[in-house]
C-alpha cells in the first residue's frame, strides 16, 4: 500500500491505495467519478480518458501512484456550474447518442482546444484518434468540436 495525494478536479484527496491500483479504479471505485468508464482496458477505446496536467491520457494505463503530483481532470471537473462550451456544442450538434464515449471525447477535445484554439477539421480528427464511437459516425462529433472552438474564440 502507498499513501498518495491526488489532485482531482481541483480537490485534494489523500488515499491509501495498493501499489498496483490503476487510476481508473481509484477514480471510479474509491472517489466515485463515474464519468470515467471501464471498457477495453487496453488503451484502445478512450472511454477512460482523463486529463493529466491538461493532456488527455488513459486512466486504464496509469498507476494511481504515478498520478501523484499531476492535476487530474475528469469529466465531472468540467462545467461544474454551467455546461462547458464543448459539452454544450456536443448537445447542439447532436454529437451524443448512447453517450458512453462522450466524456472521453469531450476531454480529448478540451486537451486539443486548450493547446490549439483554432484547429482545422484534420487536426480535430487527428486529436480524437484515440477515442472510439460506435453510434454517431464521428461527423457530428468533429462538427461539435469545431463549433465549440468558434464559440470559445468569441467568448474568451
Amino acid at each position: 500500500m502507498k499513501t498518495v495525494t491526488l489532485d482531482v478536479n481541483g480537490k485534494v484527496f489523500c488515499l491509501d491505495v495498493p501499489d498496483g491500483e490503476l487510476l481508473i479504479e481509484t477514480l471510479r471505485d474509491r472517489l466515485g467519478f463515474l464519468g470515467t468508464k471501464y471498457s477495453c482496458l487496453e488503451g484502445d477505446c478512450g472511454v477512460c480518458t482523463v486529463l493529466a496536467d491538461g493532456k488527455n491520457v488513459l486512466s486504464c494505463l496509469m498507476l494511481t501512484v504515478e498520478a501523484e503530483g499531476r492535476k487530474i481532470t475528469t469529466i465531472e471537473g468540467l462545467g461544474q456550474k454551467d455546461l462547458h462550451p464543448i459539452q454544450q456544442a456536443f448537445i447542439d450538434e447532436g454529437a451524443v447518442q448512447c453517450g458512453f464515449c462522450t466524456p472521453g471525447m469531450i476531454l480529448a477535445s478540451k486537451s486539443l482546444l486548450d493547446a490549439h484554439p483554432s484547429p482545422t477539421q484534420d487536426e480535430v480528427v487527428h486529436a480524437l484518434d484515440g477515442n472510439l464511437c460506435r453510434c454517431t459516425g464521428y461527423v457530428r462529433i468533429v462538427n461539435a468540436v469545431l463549433s465549440a472552438a468558434r464559440k470559445m474564440k468569441k467568448t474568451p
Binding site: 493532456k55 488527455n56 494505463l61 480529448a108 480524437l128 484515440g130
Partner: peptide
C-alpha cells in the same frame, strides 16, 4: 505512432 492519448504517455 498509435493514438493521441498514447502519444501523451
Amino acid at each position: 505512432v498509435a493514438t493521441t492519448p498514447l502519444r501523451h504517455m
